[in-house]
Nucleic acid binder design. Sequence first.
DNA 1: GATTTTCGTGTTACCGGTAACATAATAAAT
DNA 2: ATTTATTATGTTACCGGTAACACGAAAATC
Lengths: 331, 331
Amino acid sequence: MKKKRPTLQDIADKVGATKMTVSRCLRAPDTVSEGLRERIFKAAEQVGYIPNRAPDLLSRATSHSIGVLVPSLTNQVFADVIVGIEAYTEPAGYYLMLSHYGYSPALEERSLASLLSYNVDGVILSDHNHTPRSLRMLETAGIPVVEIMDTHRQPLQQSVGYDNVKAAFDMVSAMIRRGRRQVVYLAVRLDERTQQREQGYRQAMEAHGLIPTTLHSTQRSSYSVGAALLEQVVINHPDTDGIFCTNDDVAVGAYFECQRRGIDVPGQMAIAGFHGHDIGQAMTPRLASVITPRQAIGKAAAKALLARIQGEPPAADIIDMGYTIETGGTL
Amino acid sequence: MKKKRPTLQDIADKVGATKMTVSRCLRAPDTVSEGLRERIFKAAEQVGYIPNRAPDLLSRATSHSIGVLVPSLTNQVFADVIVGIEAYTEPAGYYLMLSHYGYSPALEERSLASLLSYNVDGVILSDHNHTPRSLRMLETAGIPVVEIMDTHRQPLQQSVGYDNVKAAFDMVSAMIRRGRRQVVYLAVRLDERTQQREQGYRQAMEAHGLIPTTLHSTQRSSYSVGAALLEQVVINHPDTDGIFCTNDDVAVGAYFECQRRGIDVPGQMAIAGFHGHDIGQAMTPRLASVITPRQAIGKAAAKALLARIQGEPPAADIIDMGYTIETGGTL
DNA sequence: GATTTTCGTGTTACCGGTAACATAATAAAT
DNA sequence: ATTTATTATGTTACCGGTAACACGAAAATC
């Protein structure tokens, strides 16, 4: 007894034409005679016609949609990137299919299979670490792929982002230049970018003859992890005079803990974060941070992807969007 | 010259069977003889077969996907809700199609059309304010709809959330009970929930014979807007002794501004937020806030939606997930 | 050994748009 | 007035899975 949703045929029946004519009328109204046109539009309105992409998707294997895989949606970094992507895809008439995989390559594989099963025309990936089957699927799908948030490694096809190693190196160098000697790196989780930042940190420390120290937490990033890591710094590395945090959440959490413990920032302790989130920029003192152009990265990635979907050759393998070192008030 | 992606027929050709047998083999391996089964799996592996949902979507008009419309992805509130939704849909094998519409009903209409054109089996909406065409589309699509984040108004079909009016009333009442008399409401943007909270705020104030005052900002919510609003409070309403903020971002921004101005919190100024975000819970003093069960709401909404997609009658029109008043250290 | 059941596989048709081609009607050109 | 171009509409086939049904062969039952 359930009514199924109206089709072109339903409209055609109402006006005494074929669905082909209706199809034409809806897509290019002036190829249809005026009287009929009006009746078709009225009928479409009456039955409440909703376009259906399924046939298109099946017959042309083009969906006018692109897949976006991010590790986490609650991570502000990727939320910003998505906004940037959509700023480009939406006006272009492309639909975004989002998935997140919680930093797990196995889940990424599942999500990717799902996206591809919907015949997305291209995908944007946020990691370099893919399962063999993921790589295989991308290959046989034969669609353009853009990787984001890293320009350090050779991309599958094309990447848009910034150099995490260099950014970390620059920030830590700035800290050292300002007289810090015992700078500790605070890391959470073990994703690739965390490690790349550690690499940059190490390079900077070693370039100045200083000994690098990293404190890891296996938990996911949060303010409280930042606080907990700072506690560890105080207990296990009491002569630390600066911390470089893998992101702003950790940095802000550490800052709060400094406040609670009466540690003067930046007097006794310099703090630097990564990404330049609102919270760090709004607090006083302003948090030193590597400001990454997340929305711009999303936009550029979408632009590069759509260009290739439309058949243009890739402009460049690696598109570096750079970053800005904000020294704020905590160095 | 581009190779198209492999189909069941390609596998069938390789093993000398029909695509029907291959289809069966992949979905129910033990209905196919052992020898053939092995050859099919090998061939599938070889050609790199990727499942294709398009035919299913076309012939059965069921996509095993649900549409989720949220006003904003960068808003932590909705990011949390989405995580909750996915926690339920992912194990159930449903795919999530996300869209955001920037608090604009017109954009919501576009996004909704897009979702429906992909034949989603159900939708989760985050607002009550829909265009007539949106309502019409939902009607003709004939799919289950669940609205989230509000239980105050009568839902289209079913809603999952909490009562914004009552929550605001409770929080403001708590402030008054602790001796605050000049409580100002800080609002951003003019979405429905902001107004509902204002309503609750007014009711609480009036119930105690106090005069409600609202300060609006038309900008989108951010820490800096919170700071700017607090500045207005100080200038235009100098005898204010408490602020109730429409969300935690504004509250934290206002708190930072108090710090900068040397206003003692909570001594001179009580501050309360809404939603109980990490940042407020991590700072010292802990921010008073209405803690909303966002993930639980997402999960319950997904559960209710899937149940109805699978033909069960709705358990209840309105599912109230409640909230918790956290008085923290800023009251 | 004849009948029935089970099992493995094949055949056909369908979903709903639209590209490609065909056709009828009218207008323009010669 | 005849040919040619133009316009408006119709016909057919297709995309890739799978439900529904058909069928032959082997296994089980009597």
